[in-house]
Design a protein around this nucleic acid. Structure first.
Lengths: 279, 279
DNA sequence: TTATTTTTGGAAAATTTATTCCAAAATTTG
DNA sequence: CAAATTTTGGAATAAATTTTCCAAAAATAA
């Protein structure tokens, strides 16, 4: 039966998955310092296995004693017991060997495909870093940062890129509009003086995006293009071109490098706007 | 020639890869016990970060003092120094901090940001290859390949991923439907027996996607999830989870690894369907 | 074989790390 | 507003881990 005192204290989780759930469940009810520990631990699970209490506590901006109390609140005797769960949960299958295996299984299996995509992605990123002209990027960011509103367009394969940019711009509270043709609406009237346009298109270039760039240019807006070749039909209409070349896996071309460039562009625009505001 | 003693040993490697090479190179010339240590360490690199000398020495069937001598033979002051290299080698680089540094240096330039995103992307891909369970990927692909129709849902940050998948599925003529909530329509009636669902969601998880997974599960459809933690609220409803962790740059997390995984999944589904047809 | 050098393992010392404790501060309750 | 309770942070203590040291064993050279 239960021991004379303490009917409570459910046994502490023994595997990482359960432990993380428990932490997440418990966090809201914890006092401030302990909650900081909980949140930091959830955000940096990789560090727990290889750090000392002092280091983790410092990360969570709490004293080590608070961290130990946090472990005890979860039902463990102390930090060491708690850490053990993370250590066992993080015994990684070893790593170079793993990629080798993925590759060895050949292109037909799903994991083999993943290996191919991972490798293609890394190549694309390397190429991007090597070939992109920093001056172009800088100039494109400056140009968009000055705009009252940024009009983004990208269809088909470029669609997700446009969607991602719209999302990031909104997150940063930068006025932006994604011309995604939902409901077949072209919304050209939204293109106003003082705005800027960002057209994303890859071969085979979709007519609508080219027409969009042309319309924006005709209204005097500066147009930045994110595209794959200098021969792109967007060319006559644009102020700056950012070129990305993606490595392909068979007939498929993931958007790895393109999205990294898009991210950098968006954040750069955000920073430039902040600077401008604080001046 | 060199001075009688201390021809000054070369500095010990500071990164994991170099260290492992050095160990392999040194091992054959080491005396028996130290060689045992070297070999055990090469065979179990994951343990080094989370064990004590005593544990590692026991694994290598040598006394702790031998293990310490082994570390010193590599040029480190002792075990602790040696272990640090392993610990840092398995940690996620913290791009938030790195971005801070870029800022502090006054390098708010767009190219500086791009460098950070490229590096974060490469790390994300590496981690993906390292941590994804091939069996999960294989099973998820098989599961979706059997479906009459694949229902995809992903909102906010996951939106572009859902969009990309829908695009690729269409390209491959795989029946798929993106539940993007355009026009606030939920279209639950489309979920029919024989179909499968693919839910994409990252912290903070959007309610709608969780509800979608729940609805699909309630109708008996197998649900595959593409998500970031085991603590995801999608968990109760799904058949298979594919976990991706993206490195973040400051508050921003590009979708590099996620899209590579999505690509591999989509192409694998396509291949499996072709195989099935030709039988 | 003997002398010399290298390697070995256990035990003691030094250091680092975890845990407890308690007075002060903050919060909640009456 | 005062009393009771909870939370906090640092200092003291306890525990663990690492490192050094040295005599004995093994290997090598003469």
């Amino acid at each position: 039966m239960a021991s004379p005192h303490s009917s409570s204290a459910p046994p502490p989780p023994a595997d990482l998955e359960a432990l993380q759930k428990r932490i997440a469940a418990l966090a809201p009810d914890l006092p401030k310092r302990l909650r900081q520990c909980a949140e930091w631990v959830l955000a940096h699970p990789d560090r727990v296995a290889v750090s000392t209490v002092a280091q983790l506590a410092a990360g969570a901006e709490a004293p080590p004693s608070a961290f130990v109390r946090f472990c005890q609140a979860l039902g463990y005797a102390g930090f060491s017991d708690f850490q053990t769960v993370y250590r066992e949960g993080y015994l990684w299958p070893d790593y170079g060997v793993r990629l080798e295996k993925l590759r060895a299984r050949g292109d037909r299996s799903a994991p083999g495909l993943l290996a191919a995509f991972v490798e293609a992605g890394r190549d694309s990123l390397e190429t991007l870093a090597k070939t992109l002209d920093p001056a172009d990027l800088e100039a494109a960011a400056a140009l968009l940062a000055r705009a009252r509103m940024i009009h983004v367009m990208g269809l088909r394969r470029a669609g997700p890129v446009a969607g991602y940019l719209a999302y990031v711009f909104e997150k940063m509270e930068i006025p932006a509009m994604n011309h995604d043709l939902a409901g077949r609406l072209e919304r050209r009237a939204a293109l106003r003086p003082g705005d800027a346009a960002l057209a994303i298109s890859f071969a085979p270039y979709s007519e609508e995006t080219v027409a969009f760039a042309e319309a924006a240019a005709a209204r005097g807006l500066p147009v930045v293009a994110l595209t794959d070749t200098l021969a792109s039909p967007l060319h006559p209409h644009i102020r700056r071109a950012l070129l990305v070349k993606e490595a392909d896996v068979g007939a498929f071309r993931p958007l790895t490098a393109t999205l990294s460039l898009a991210s950098a562009l968006a954040v750069a625009v955000g920073m430039k706007r902040e600077e401008a505001l604080s001046e």
